[in-house]
Amino acid sequence: MDGEPLVRWHWIGDHLGYLRDLALDHAVISLVPVLIALLAAVPLGLLCARLPRLYQPLAAVFNVVYALPAIAVFVVLIPYTGLATRATVMVPLTCYALAVLLPATVDGLRAVPEDVRQAATALGYGPWHRLAAVDLPASVPYLVAGVRVAAVSSISLAAVGALVGRGGLGYLFVDGFQRTFPTPILAGIALVVLLALATDLLLVLARRLLAPWAAGGAR
């Protein structure tokens, strides 16, 4: 209607608890898959670094998965994981995050200079000790850079899950569209952006704590 404000602030004020719950649900369904993918990417990356022939076909598989439209994957999973369940959204997001984190892990491990590895071996470091003390710490900037990309992407894609009944802040987009009511849509956009920015900031701080020598980040 003409003259009607684009944002009804009183609606936001009356629904703060609802918005908080949606934001928390969105954080869970978008960021837990990234954590799971990270836990899987490290051992897979180690294996690929030791067996280079395995890396290319494995990366190709994940690249194909990453190229699949999220909504199509969600729909395909419904008969197996159920409608409006977290699993329907989180399983594809885990695969998408793994497609980003596996190359980041392999690149980080390959970035360790060979003379550094040899020096560690000369000092008496065994394979596992060298891995924990040299290889993994040196790969931290690459890993965190990959996690930043995966996390922001996952936060964005999670909203699509509202179309299959589980999308956190995506509910606001669906609700606003169905009612031709822009306030929930704008609130959802703002909260998704804030969640992505807050997550990215925390990861930048984590990188500075874990790898203070790489303040500029991996490139």
Rank of each mutant, 00 (worst) to 15 (best):
V112G: 06
L101K: 06
P92D: 09
L102P: 03
L109F: 15
A99V: 06
L143Y: 07
V100K: 00
V116G: 01
A132M: 13
M90C: 01
Y125A: 12
L123A: 15
P103G: 08
Y142K: 01
G126K: 09
E114C: 01
V116H: 09
P92S: 05
L93D: 04
E114T: 15
H129G: 10
P141Q: 11
S139T: 09
M90A: 03
A111F: 06
T105R: 02
L143N: 07
P141Y: 13
D135L: 05
P92R: 02
V112S: 06
L98G: 01
P127M: 12
L123P: 11
P137L: 13
L101N: 07
L109N: 05
T94Q: 01
H129Y: 09
A99C: 05
V116Q: 11
M90Y: 03
V100C: 02
R110Q: 13
D115K: 04
M90T: 02
G124E: 07
V106D: 03
P92I: 00
A122G: 15
Y142E: 07
G126F: 12
A122Y: 10
L101F: 02
L109A: 00
L93Q: 03
A120M: 10
V106E: 04
G126P: 12
A138R: 14
Y142T: 01
Q118L: 11
A99W: 10
V106W: 01
A119R: 13
P103I: 02
C95G: 15
R130M: 09
T94L: 05
V134A: 10
T121L: 07
R130K: 10
R110C: 03
T94I: 00
A132E: 11
L102Y: 08
P113R: 00
A138V: 08
R130L: 05
V140N: 13
P137S: 12
V91I: 03
D107V: 06
L109E: 01
W128S: 14
L102F: 09
G126H: 11
P127K: 13
V140W: 14
A132V: 14
T94M: 05
P103H: 08
A132W: 15
L136C: 05
L131C: 11
D135T: 06
V91M: 01
P141G: 11
L109Y: 09
A132N: 08
Q118E: 14
D107P: 00
D135K: 04
A104I: 03
A97F: 12
Y125I: 02
L131G: 08
A120W: 10
G108C: 03
P92Y: 04
L136D: 08
D107A: 15
A111K: 04
A138Q: 14
T94Y: 01
V91R: 01
L98Q: 09
P141L: 11
V112E: 00
V100Y: 07
A122E: 09
L98Y: 07
D135Q: 11
P92A: 04
L136W: 12
A99F: 07
V116N: 02
L143K: 06
L93E: 02
L109I: 08
W128V: 15
L131M: 15
W128T: 15
V116T: 14
L93R: 04
L131A: 11
A138S: 15
P92G: 00
A133M: 13
Y96R: 07
L102W: 08
